[in-house]
Design a protein around this nucleic acid. Sequence first.
DNA 1: CAAGATATGTCAATATGGCTGACATAATTT
DNA 2: AAATTATGTCAGCCATATTGACATATCTTG
Lengths: 162, 162
Amino acid sequence: MASAALRWDIIELLFFAYRDFVGDADHELEVFGFGRAHHRVLHFVHRYPGLKVADLLDVLRITKQSLGRVLKQLLDEGYIVQKAGNNDRRQRLLFATPKGEALVAKLAGLQTDRLNRALRGIEPAGLETIRQFLRAMIDRDDPDKVLEAIFGAPSSGAKTKE
Amino acid sequence: MASAALRWDIIELLFFAYRDFVGDADHELEVFGFGRAHHRVLHFVHRYPGLKVADLLDVLRITKQSLGRVLKQLLDEGYIVQKAGNNDRRQRLLFATPKGEALVAKLAGLQTDRLNRALRGIEPAGLETIRQFLRAMIDRDDPDKVLEAIFGAPSSGAKTKE
DNA sequence: CAAGATATGTCAATATGGCTGACATAATTT
DNA sequence: AAATTATGTCAGCCATATTGACATATCTTG
């Protein structure tokens, strides 16, 4: 049908929910002179220790130059450290320092508080539905290293990246 | 307690889900030389016809100066029109033109396609859980006009699209 | 009516975080 | 030795956000 119902309400709810969700972290980041970009880098380096710069570029879908500025600040200020790869010494594997861990945990704490409030009164089955929904919202045709970890085995038809 | 579990998985799923969700529209907007900011303005003007400039500023949480540039483009190119308020002729009430309606519907169509795919296999009760979750994620301490419509009277306020 | 407040628009300068293109270096692969 | 790869960096551009200042029209109030 040409007039298939558009899901205006969910589109709108997603906008507001995400706005306030990231707002929690944004506010705290200001104190440190950081922005949302720093948070994203720190989050993924914390979650996937030893992530390569190239992996990070895939996940964040930004250019090397854009990442460079943000990453340099996090390195200079001691939130992240680099180590040369064992097999390939060109690689700079990234790790969060204790200082970095502390910040990212603080930010995750704020967001977890909001999530816990929102999940109050929702049964475990309901939470599973929400997870299923969110996972199904994500493109799986060209999964990066992080998405492969999230989804386990690469999805059908997806090219397997080494 | 200090060791309360942080919801890393949901935090991450929200990041990817939202990234790909807005990505659909972003890609299409490029064709028109517009950005995400134009989409947001057009969306809310479409959904709440006669929205004042001040309302829009509350909803988008940006400054008048930032809105000005985007709004001017949408006006100049005929996606939105202004009308002076009946009671207060200082007000510029905003309305989407047919051209604007067409664009915003196209964008909503892309996002609805993704939502429908993600909701496939989820029961009506599950969809209600997702709505409940998203609504509970939103700050309600200082509701703007749009949020009042969303939370105030269920299924009223927003234009019910034919 | 005059004064002040309000709704909007606009100018100028600045910051952040994206982008492209070009080039450098070190290390691995061929 | 040459080519490719992983990373870093310089320079400049663009979009979207910011603050501050000021202009205009209109409404409200003393």
